Simulated assay, not measured.
Amino acid sequence: MSTISKTRAITKKALVAAAKRGTKKAAAVGMNIDGYNIVAKNGWIVKLYQSGRVERLSKIARYHVSVLFD
């Protein structure tokens, strides 16, 4: 693996780790302010309450895209 490839891999790892930390922190703040978070879970958009209750809001549509090559 070249030095550039290693640097890109390290940079990507750092970016992914920072994004995960930021998302978790934002979810915790949102839960404390609103008492719930809205997330995608098992093919549904759901509302997760502080009590642990889960309310299904909408099923996520699945789209199949076919790509044609000339």
Score class of each variant (00 low, 15 high):
V54H: 04
Y36F: 15
S2G: 15
R56Q: 08
A17D: 12
S66V: 10
A28H: 08
K13Y: 10
H64K: 10
G35R: 07
V39I: 05
S58M: 01
K12L: 15
A27F: 01
A26E: 11
K20S: 06
V67Y: 15
K25S: 10
V16W: 00
V65Q: 07
I38G: 05
V67H: 13
K41T: 01
N37P: 00
N42M: 01
A14R: 13
M1H: 06
R21I: 08
K24D: 11
Y36R: 06
K24I: 02
S66Y: 07
A18F: 01
A18D: 11
A61H: 07
A14H: 07
T7M: 09
N42S: 12
K12P: 06
A18N: 08
V39E: 15
K25E: 13
A17S: 12
R8A: 13
S2C: 10
I60D: 04
V29T: 05
V16E: 09
K20Y: 05
T7D: 07
N32W: 08
A27Q: 10
R56K: 15
V16P: 03
T3C: 03
R8K: 14
R8Y: 12
A40T: 00
L15Q: 14
A26Q: 12
R21N: 13
G43C: 04
M1E: 11
N32I: 04
R53S: 12
A27Y: 04
G30F: 05
A9N: 07
M1N: 08
Y49A: 06
V29H: 09
R62P: 05
T3W: 02
A14K: 13
A28D: 13
N42D: 15
L48S: 10
S5R: 07
K59C: 05
W44I: 01
S51N: 13
L15K: 13
K24Y: 05
K20A: 09
L68Q: 02
V67C: 11
M1G: 14
K12F: 14
Q50V: 07
I38F: 05
N42H: 09
L57F: 05
E55V: 01
K41I: 01
Q50F: 03
T11F: 11
G43F: 02
K6A: 14
A28T: 03
R21P: 01
G52I: 11
I60V: 09
V54Y: 06
L68H: 02
N42V: 00
S5K: 09
G35K: 10
A17I: 00
R56L: 05
L48E: 14
M31F: 03
D70M: 05
T11C: 12
K59D: 06
A26C: 03
L57E: 08
A17P: 01
G52D: 08
H64F: 11
S51L: 01
K6G: 08
A27R: 07
A40Q: 10
K6H: 11
F69C: 06
Y63S: 01
I10A: 12
A9P: 00
G52Y: 08
K13M: 13
V46W: 02
K47A: 04
T3I: 11
M1P: 02
I38N: 06
A19T: 07
N37M: 09
Y36V: 03
